[in-house]
Design a protein around this nucleic acid. Sequence first.
DNA 1: GTTCGCACCTGAGCGC
DNA 2: TGCGCTCAGGTGCGAA
Length: 293
Amino acid sequence: MPELPEVEVVRRGLTTHLVGRTIERIEVLHPRAIRRHIAGPADLIGALTGVRIERIERRGKFMWLCAADRTGRADTAVVVHLGMSGQMLVKTRDAQLHKHTRIVVDLDDGNRLCFVDQRTFGGWMVEPFVVVDGELLPASVAHIARDALDPRFDIEAVITKLRHKHTKVKRALLDQTVLSGVGNIYADEALWRARIHGRRLTDRLTRTALRELIGHAQDVMRSALAVGGTSFDALYVNVNGESGYFDRSLAAYGQRDRPCHRCGAAIAREAFMNRSSFYCPVCQPAPRSPRRR
DNA sequence: GTTCGCACCTGAGCGC
DNA sequence: TGCGCTCAGGTGCGAA
């Protein structure tokens, strides 16, 4: 599942292959892939045909291609979200299309960019930039908080924000308007490292505990980035179709019934927010408060 | 205003 | 072999 490290690996790969390239032709094979581009496929195709890709940027799990028109003005953002299973694959034009290819982009160097997305949670949209906190961001990314690996990430401000909330800490970690880039996998890993149960309430945690938790989230994502991200199956690969290796280093996520690396107790799984949470019931004791509000 | 639950979506894996 | 069920989870919207 693409979280911050996986999206960053893809961004770096795309930077190598796409920057300086001009889009010759674009084809939308599945309307759901551009469902957030309200003006429809014809508008998206018209907006992108002939533009040159100047650079590729990212905030959290959102990535965008900065496109310049024929006059050289880089005023259009192609926002890409990989969702759960999105892949940005660079191939030669004669390569066979994957079954779940949703968008095809032919580049002026003879290569082809394919957006492949099995579960269709991902998508593209084209939009202008807006100024947020002194930075140019695509309009749909304006509400997304800085991610934990952003050089301007303000950990003390995030701790203050968390302390003013009254919600479960795992939910807050997954809230992209508080800090971005953390998904279910790295949330579980950070909570395990910090010995905090995900159902603990944010306003009951000390600033020290929250600082430690966010520090662990930063560490675990940096470690994952160093080895190309986390892959469980073919749903996450880089632009060349290669998988990452961080799944071999996971201590909590997906480790149900396996011994905790610290205490040996069996890692437990519980349902949380329509997904799974993995934790050590000894190292991360559950709060006494009832499970449901 | 804040918090929570759920729909969206597809395919693998499993039991019967 | 085939069917039906469960599970995976990021985002955004409506409900409370």
